[in-house]
Write a protein that binds this DNA or RNA. Structure first.
Lengths: 212, 212
DNA sequence: GGTCAAGTGGCAGTGGCTGACATAATCTCG
DNA sequence: CGAGATTATGTCAGCCACTGCCACTTGACC
């Protein structure tokens, strides 16, 4: 009994299965009938639980739609925390994104088919309510990143530079993510190249004259 | 008859009065009992119309909370469109913001007391649902700004630089707006100084080394 | 004044979401 | 293993945002 640490009991395993079933059912229904065209009752029924139980796993309908995305964001933030202090903030952000994409396809596939996730991402961009919720969470992430950068660099919390840098970085990420969902069928190797190229544009973007 | 062009008929004047009454009632109730603690029925009752009529003026409850903010954004975008092509994008953005603040206090007071608007702005930052809706609209504004900049500069729409610049700029604006709502009681003259100072940080924020 | 269009109210219905309570499934420990 | 504590689930009642529909009223225009 004092053997393996992470042997989850039956209860935990069941919870995880229910949660995954809810996510899968939800994303499939969304991609089939649209976000607004799908009711929570239908999702719950498809996952074989009551509506009440759905709301015990997700605080609202938005959350299940964004759940996979949330995982990717957590991975990225965790990767960022591991960057050595020697790296400049922008370099650390860049390295963290690329690192967080290692093995992400497998992590996604553990919950839903990758292709379904890509379709979901496109749906988020097109559904005002979801886009709003998504952007709010990104703003929270930006807050945490800026705070962490200020800490790393030993800056006072009022210094605006971390926030500005993070805003520019976040703008790039939003842009490349959109391209990724639109164009490719979700190939991450292609995304890497685009992202790197776009990040290289942050410097030039702030130069006064672009017409050279 | 063929006399003054913009003499609004009784019908139009009544609509405007109803709309303004709804906004005032809503913001007052929000600031009194909070956003979620206020029902649309209460707002409608306070403005002496039916709930059904409320939803003819605003597509949802969020919209009335953000209505004054929307006006400020429209002013800014209009001001930006008037900037001469000779100005660099960042300069044009900067000048447009400051210009759009001329006379804005009067424009706000025409609908609600300025102090109520300031409190509302604070509420938006604290209410997740409102913050989400607000950020989504800002993202739309960023899209339009980036498109306009690309046009001005004769860049192809895929060029990422306008978006990056706008993202950084928008980050500054979000930050200063927050400070404005928190600290001062809504004094715009102070806001001008802070904004200018923060905008000057955009360049340095992208420099590799901050510890100089 | 009469007609036409536009604004309004009332009502019924859908769907997201919550609190309360009872039941059923795991867990824990003797 | 089994009784009792914990925790997950289902059911039900209810609030509130929001919508479609239809009847009614009120400005607009000749």
């Amino acid at each position: 009994m004092h053997a393996i640490e992470d042997a989850p009991g039956l209860r935990e395993r069941k919870k995880r299965r229910t949660r995954d079933a809810l996510i899968r059912s939800a994303l499939e229904l969304f991609s089939l009938k649209g976000y607004e065209g799908t009711t929570v009752d239908e999702i719950a029924a498809a996952a074989d639980v009551s509506q009440r139980t759905f709301f015990r796993y997700f605080t609202n309908k938005e959350e299940v739609a964004l759940s996979v995305q949330l995982m990717a964001e957590s991975r990225f933030f965790a990767a960022f925390l591991e960057r050595p202090a020697a790296e400049s903030p922008l370099t650390a952000l860049r390295t963290a994104v690329l690192a967080s994409w290692d093995g992400i396809e497998e992590a996604i596939e553990a919950v839903v088919p990758l292709e379904l996730h890509v379709r979901t991402y496109g749906m988020i961009q097109e559904t005002p309510q979801l886009l709003a919720a998504h952007l709010r969470r990104l703003a929270e992430l930006e807050d945490r990143l800026a705070a962490e950068i200020a800490r790393r660099e030993g800056l006072p919390p009022q210094d605006p530079r971390p926030r500005i840098l993070v805003a520019a970085f976040s703008g790039v990420m939003r842009e490349t993510s959109k391209l990724w969902a639109d164009a490719a069928g979700g190939d991450f190797s292609e995304l890497r190249g685009t992202t790197a190229a776009y990040l290289d544009q942050i410097g030039p973007a702030l130069a006064e004259n672009w017409r050279s």
